[in-house]
């Protein structure tokens, strides 16, 4: 098989695989949104002086941060119901959606740590100055500390997103038809072992060209925001 033939085969299967990649992107975007929202609460919870809030937030963060993503994925796929009933309407939860929720947990835990780290990177003197001016702890957090450190949270958040995207092919194992699964199917359909390398190379390129700019931008921002 010549190189041009291989290329022709790759191009032929490209739309099929790209549609799968679309699912990887969809899962990653939804998971980063859910994870960021959840992680914000967990992160602020970790900083709470109320033990009833702080301890569970820290525990959840450590639990989900140190668990293998695949295991969390299995939990969500096999423990979540296939469909939920809301007000008489039954909504089917497709496996990609359950996988997305599975990805959201480790994302939330990692983002929780990003929030905690950013808040703790603000010098203690800022809290003191605010306290001396009559600000409550909560007002200090929202009016003085967080506005200072949101820019510092963006680069690690982008890295987290890139990491998440590269983890989404794990969902193939639980039957989600994303890019890796489709590539595998395409290779099998061609029944030609010579296509193995070019096909997977195309898949790698897909991920690379999507994630690499994100990591580059994150680096640039890191420099600009003077992240330590």
């Amino acid at each position: 098989m010549t190189a041009s033939q291989a290329l022709a085969n790759v191009v032929e299967w490209m739309p099929f695989i790209l549609r799968g990649f679309g699912l990887n992107i969809l899962m990653s975007v939804l998971a980063i949104l859910i994870g960021t929202a959840l992680g914000t609460f967990l992160g602020l919870g970790q900083l709470s002086r109320l033990r009833l809030v702080g301890a569970p937030s820290r525990l959840a963060t450590q639990l989900f941060r140190n668990a293998p993503w695949l295991v969390l994925l299995f939990y969500c796929i096999f423990l979540m119901p296939y469909q939920v009933n809301i007000g008489g309407m039954s909504i089917v939860l497709p496996s990609w959606l359950r996988a997305t929720i599975g990805f959201s947990f480790p994302v939330a835990a990692n983002f929780s740590e990003i929030v905690r780290g950013a808040v703790n990177s603000v010098p203690h003197g800022q809290w003191e100055a605010a306290e001396a001016l009559g600000y409550s702890r909560r007002a200090t957090l929202f009016r003085i500390v967080l506005p200072q450190c949101i820019s510092r949270m963006i680069p690690p958040w982008m890295n987290l997103y890139a990491l998440l995207l590269t983890a989404t092919p794990l969902s193939m194992i639980v039957g989600v038809e994303e890019a890796l699964g489709r590539t595998q199917a395409a290779v099998q359909a061609q029944a030609n072992s010579a296509m193995l390398i070019p096909m997977y190379l195309a898949l790698l390129a897909m991920f690379f060209f999507y994630t690499w700019p994100i990591n580059r931008l994150s680096r640039t921002l890191e420099g600009r925001f003077g992240t330590k």
Binding site: P123, G125, Q126, E128, A129, A130, A132, I144, P147, Q148
Partner: peptide, 9 residues
Amino acid sequence: FQQYNLFPH
């Protein structure tokens, strides 16, 4: 304070 502690943003 000794370190001024102005709000940089």
